[in-house]
Design a protein around this nucleic acid. Structure first.
Length: 458
RNA sequence: GAGGUUGUAGCUCAGUUGGUUAGAGCGUCGGUUUGUGGUACCGAAGGUCGCGGGUUCGAGACCCGUCUCCCUCCCCA
């Protein structure tokens, strides 16, 4: 039976041109990471389920791709769990491995496991695929690449500063029409919950506030009511929905609001220090915005939270990040603070494509193609190809002596810049016809000037 | 995981209230005196109409199921 070839939903194939464009994105990000002293690491594409499960909140577990046990292990399936309708336990009995959901949690595992081999503060970057069993949508895939940079082993706000600089440096290189780095601090959110007497419902409050720009003030209030937040608390929290002004002014207002919350004030203090550092390096304040509604669901963040949005496109966040004080604690290494950011390469790709911002040179093809006229002629071509490559000129000899029409069409389709023609006549003369595929111009030249031609034009 | 939408040639799509051999453009391949591509002209190949069932004398069109695409929500890059 013939099956129509297809790939799983939320995945994509990449043609040579796509790969060239993706590599451009990866290379740009890598070069900035490297410039700031981050070193690359890699971790396996799958981890033990126990490493990943429970690290991303209730919703997160649902989105983790599980890997089914194979062979004899399948017999360990917990059928009683299935009978009792306990699907999570049943799933755990069937699967002990899972595809990684992000790069941060595997990195925390990595740091704990290799703590004696690392020098702290440890700065690493990591560019690898991650998988989420999410429903695919615009800018949302089941397999996509994250480009992470994290610093662990330092609670200095200079780390936050550096990561903001990296956001700016990378995104500026892509020539986006505009972007905004949103920043908030989890401690401020904790302080708010504490102050209105609903500390136990931090997550519910955070999730509701996060939707302010989407569902509006009324929507958030309804949401809070649904979650059982007291009406007194809801009244108390309302002034926060109308925060206006510069980053500094908003921070001042929130500081007044949080004057009775120690942890809340700590968060304000941290943000003030970050803004002050940004001032000192004359960072462009236009692109950074303190946003009290920025929450991010990932429940391991404890300090700064980042999110970046591109202007003029309909797309979710293109970057995220934040500080986590106790992520490695989950794997048995206490008191190690980390902070990191992640670039969504695939979303950046979609935006650059939509806005036609990829550099032209990425689509340039082969420099020289030698037309093949037969055994004797191609021997000369093969020798010349060796000389060209010795001079770092990319070239190839067409593999078989088809009609020239075919070979030229091939050259045209490949986007070849020059075609070298060595047929019977040229062989007799000891010369080469060099044809410029763009202009159609042909020049008869000897071997020395042929090699030289590329040396000088390059 | 909840809701909505889509599915006809490699791609983008036509296909009247169910009625003969399902069409177009682009692309592919071949040709236009065999040493010249990208333009032009001529010609050809290519579809069990997503898949499975049902209604009907008859289904690409109607009904049910299923998968997929895209969208909204949840969440996120």
């Amino acid at each position: 039976m013939i099956q129509k070839p297809t790939i799983p939903k939320g995945t994509r194939d990449f043609l040579p041109q796509d790969v060239a464009r993706r590599n451009y994105i990866f290379d740009t990000i890598k070069s900035v990471f490297k410039m700031h002293g981050f070193a690359p690491i890699e971790t396996p594409s799958f981890e033990l389920s126990s490493t990943l499960m429970g690290k991303y909140g209730e919703e997160g577990d649902r989105l983790i791709f599980r890997i089914l046990n194979s062979g004899e292990k399948m017999k360990r399936a917990d059928l009683s769990a299935l009978q009792e309708d306990n699907l999570p336990r049943f799933a755990n009995s069937l699967s002990e491995k899972a595809l990684r959901y992000d790069l941060t949690v595997p990195f925390a595992r990595f740091v704990v496991q290799h703590q004696n081999e690392l020098t702290f503060p440890f700065k690493r970057y990591q560019i690898q695929a991650v998988w989420r069993a999410d429903r695919p949508q615009h800018g949302r895939y089941q397999e996509f690449f994250q480009c992470d940079a994290d610093v662990v082993g330092s609670d200095s706000l200079l780390c936050e500063l550096e990561l903001i600089q990296i956001f700016d440096a990378v995104l500026s290189r892509f020539n986006l029409p505009g972007f905004t780095i949103k920043i908030n601090n989890r401690k401020i959110l904790t302080g708010i919950a504490e102050l209105i007497g609903e500390s136990g419902k931090l997550v519910d409050i955070v999730v509701a506030i996060d939707q302010l720009d989407k569902i509006g003030k009324e929507g958030v209030i309804t949401e809070l009511e649904n979650k059982g937040i007291s009406s007194k608390a809801i009244v108390a929290i309302q002034p926060l929905f109308d925060l206006q002004g510069s980053n500094k002014e908003k921070l001042d207002k929130i500081a007044v609001f949080l004057s009775e919350s120690k942890i809340g004030l700590k968060g304000v203090e941290e943000l003030r220090n970050i803004f002050s550092l940004l001032d000192k390096i004359e960072f462009n304040h236009e692109i950074i915005e303190f946003d009290i509604t920025l929450a991010r669901g990932l429940n391991y963040y404890t300090g700064a939270i980042f999110e970046v949005h591109a202007h003029d496109v309909k797309m979710g966040s293109i970057c995220g990040g934040g500080r986590y004080d106790d992520l490695t604690g989950l794997f048995g290494l206490k008191d190690l603070s980390g902070v990191g950011i992640s670039f969504g390469a695939d979303r950046i790709y979609d935006i650059l494509k939509e806005l036609d911002l990829f550099p032209k040179y990425l689509t340039e093809g082969l420099t020289v193609l030698f037309v093949n006229f037969g055994e004797k002629e191609s021997e000369i071509a093969l020798k010349l190809a060796v000389s060209l490559r010795a001079n770092s000129i990319d070239c190839e000899v067409y593999p078989s002596p088809l009609k020239m029409q075919k070979q030229l069409k091939y050259a045209n389709d490949r986007g070849v810049k020059f075609v070298a023609i060595i047929g019977e006549e040229e062989m007799k003369l000891g010369k080469i016809i060099l044809k410029n595929m763009e202009s159609g111009e042909q020049i008869l030249m000897d071997k020395a000037s042929f090699i030289n031609y590329f040396k000088t034009t390059k």
